[in-house]
Each structure stands twice: as structure tokens, then as C-alpha cells.
């Protein structure tokens, strides 16, 4: 991480950033429909914050990039996701409490370990590097993303992840839908609900991991909520919902990347603000559609806990 959000295009490989962005936007758009319908937005937030714990562990080990970085942060995200699922299944604790605990525990671990890593680097008299690795800009990039960090490896990870997600969605789409629509009945009718739930948790963790560099930890979850929320306001048939979700996500990405390039602002913030504008526009749009077609849109989605 060597860039500064104040000058995001210096050293940036824009082709790779755009490619990664397209893969991530499509991936998030597909998952966001499920996240909104299943009210899993808060779980997404918990997993993304868990990533900070992984970044801390990686920093202590002196790894700040490459496959091992992905592996460590990814493992922590998946563990956090499975831990939340396990705590919920035991029913000993409310779902939001479970997520709240995992979220703060991981953040605290991340902050502590990053600080230890900084101390260790200073002790090794590597003042310049230590100063950079934990500077305000570094934190800002970690939290809000940056174009400058994204390279070919990130594009490949995002591309492979999208391919795997599409393949799994095509193979298990009907079981996933049944689980998402009516989990208890799906379980009673012998649908593989446990596998679907674990699979979705892992997919969420992997998606957040892949999105982290470009849009940052805090804003990764926004990509997993807003495209689906927009689409569900405008359509009531699944193919249309998925198409609008992907379209909205890609549009916001294009607007966000262009704004980041034009006004030297962080990419994550720009993309998410573009998504928020899209969502705001869906309110008058859904009303026009309802009055024009006599076909009421879906009621506003209840917020997730």
C-alpha cells in the first residue's frame, strides 16, 4: 500500500482497477439480492470488519500483499462468518448480538495487532517503513479503498471468484432460492440448507475480501446491499431483479471510478455515493412505474438485523 487517496491516479494501473471493479460489482450485485431478501446486511458488515483482524494478523507476520495476504485475511473472514452462523444456530444468543461481538472483537484484534506490527518495525529501526505502514493514509485506504493498490493479482482473484459464484449459482440456484424464501420448509423438504448457508457465508467472506482493496473494508458491505435494494424496489420478477441489480452496480462503479479519477477522491466513497444516489432515485421511479402500470412494486425491504 503505497498510494495516497489525495492523488489516487498516480501509479495506478487503471485497466486492472476497472477490470477488478467490473468483476466485483457483478459479484456483489448477484449476492446483494440474497443479502437484502434474507436480511443479512449486518452479517456482511460483521464479516467485513472481521477482515481488519485478518489484516492485523498479516501485518504482524510482515505480509501486506500477495497470495498469503489474501489467504490469511480470507481465512479470518470465513472463520468469523462461520462463527456467527454457529452462534446463531445454537440459539443461545441473538443474531445481532453474535455479529456485534464478532465485529468488535475482530476490529479490536486488528487495531491491536497493527499497532504491535508498527512497534516491531520501529524496534527494527525501520522508521521510514513503520511510519508509512501505519500512517493515516494507510488506514484510510484500508477503510475506504484505493485505485493504486489494485493489480493483476486482484483482478484474477475477483475474476475467478465471479466464475465460481456463477457456476455454483447455476448448479444450486433452485436450492438457494428455496432456502432463502422459506428456510424452515426447505429444511423439512430435505433441501441442502446447511450446505447453502455455509456456502453463502463463505461467498460473502470471499467477496468482501476481494472488494476490500478497491472499495475498502467499511464500504465493501455497501456494495452487498445497495444494488439489491435498488433492484427490489423496481422489479418483482427474479430475472429482472438480478439484471437491474447488476446494471445499477456497474453504473455506480463507472460513475464512481470516473469521479475518483476526475476529482481525486477515494474510489470506495465515490462508488457508494453513486449507489446511494441510484437508490434515492428508485423511490420516484418505483412510484412512476406503479402509477403507470398499475403494478405495485415490492414494499420497501425491512432493514436487516
Amino acid at each position: 500500500m503505497h498510494g495516497s487517496p489525495a492523488t489516487p491516479l498516480e501509479n495506478a494501473d487503471l485497466t486492472m482497477a476497472i477490470l477488478t471493479g467490473v468483476f466485483i460489482a457483478t459479484q456483489c450485485a448477484l449476492l446483494s439480492v440474497l443479502v437484502v431478501l434474507k436480511r443479512m446486511a449486518f452479517i456482511g458488515q460483521g464479516i467485513s470488519h472481521a477482515a481488519l483482524g485478518g489484516v492485523g494478523i498479516a501485518a504482524v507476520l510482515g505480509i501486506m500483499d500477495g497470495p498469503w495476504y489474501f489467504l490469511i485475511v480470507g481465512a479470518v473472514c470465513v472463520l468469523a462468518a462461520l462463527l456467527v452462523g454457529w452462534m446463531q444456530d445454537r440459539k443461545a444468543i441473538a443474531s445481532d448480538t453474535a455479529i456485534g461481538i464478532v465485529l468488535v472483537a475482530s476490529m479490536a484484534l486488528g487495531v491491536t495487532l497493527l499497532s504491535i506490527a508498527e512497534g516491531a518495525a520501529e524496534a527494527a529501526h525501520d522508521h521510514a517503513h513503520a511510519h508509512e505502514s501505519a500512517s493515516g493514509h494507510e488506514w484510510e485506504e484500508l477503510l475506504f479503498g484505493s485505485l493504486t493498490d489494485v493489480g493483476m493479482f486482484d483482478a484474477i482473484v475477483a475474476g475467478v471468484l465471479l466464475l465460481i459464484t456463477l457456476a455454483l449459482a447455476l448448479r444450486f440456484g433452485r436450492a438457494i432460492l428455496f432456502w432463502a424464501f422459506d428456510e424452515r420448509s426447505a429444511c423439512a423438504f430435505g433441501a441442502p440448507t446447511g450446505a447453502v448457508q455455509v456456502g453463502l457465508m463463505i461467498a460473502l467472506a470471499a467477496t468482501i475480501l476481494a472488494s476490500m482493496k478497491l472499495v475498502g473494508v467499511i464500504l465493501a458491505t455497501a456494495l452487498l446491499v445497495l444494488p439489491g435494494a435498488c433492484a427490489l424496489r423496481l422489479a418483482n420478477q427474479l430475472p429482472a431483479v438480478l439484471t437491474i441489480s447488476i446494471g445499477t452496480s456497474l453504473l455506480a462503479l463507472a460513475v464512481g471510478l470516473a469521479s475518483a479519477a476526475a476529482f481525486t477522491i477515494p474510489v470506495g466513497g465515490a462508488v457508494v455515493l453513486a449507489l446511494v444516489v441510484c437508490y434515492t432515485l428508485t423511490w420516484p421511479l418505483s412510484r412512476i412505474k406503479a402509477s403507470g402500470a398499475g403494478d405495485p412494486p415490492n414494499p420497501p425491504q425491512r432493514t436487516s438485523t
Binding site: L37, F172, G173, R174, A175, F181, D182, S185, A186, V241
Partner: peptide, 24 residues
């Protein structure tokens, strides 16, 4: 306990138990 905001038709709901293991 179903999520009734789901963007699917009655026919799709009725077909869920039978076809849930079938690829799309």
C-alpha cells in the same frame, strides 16, 4: 415464516420442494 417480499410467482413457490436439487 417465508420471506413474502420475494420476487417470485406462486407457481415457482409451489415447484420449490420438488425441483430444489435440479440445476438451473
Amino acid at each position: 415464516l417465508a420471506e413474502l417480499n420475494f420476487p417470485i410467482s406462486v407457481r415457482q413457490v409451489v415447484s420449490m420442494p420438488q425441483n430444489n436439487r435440479l440445476p438451473l
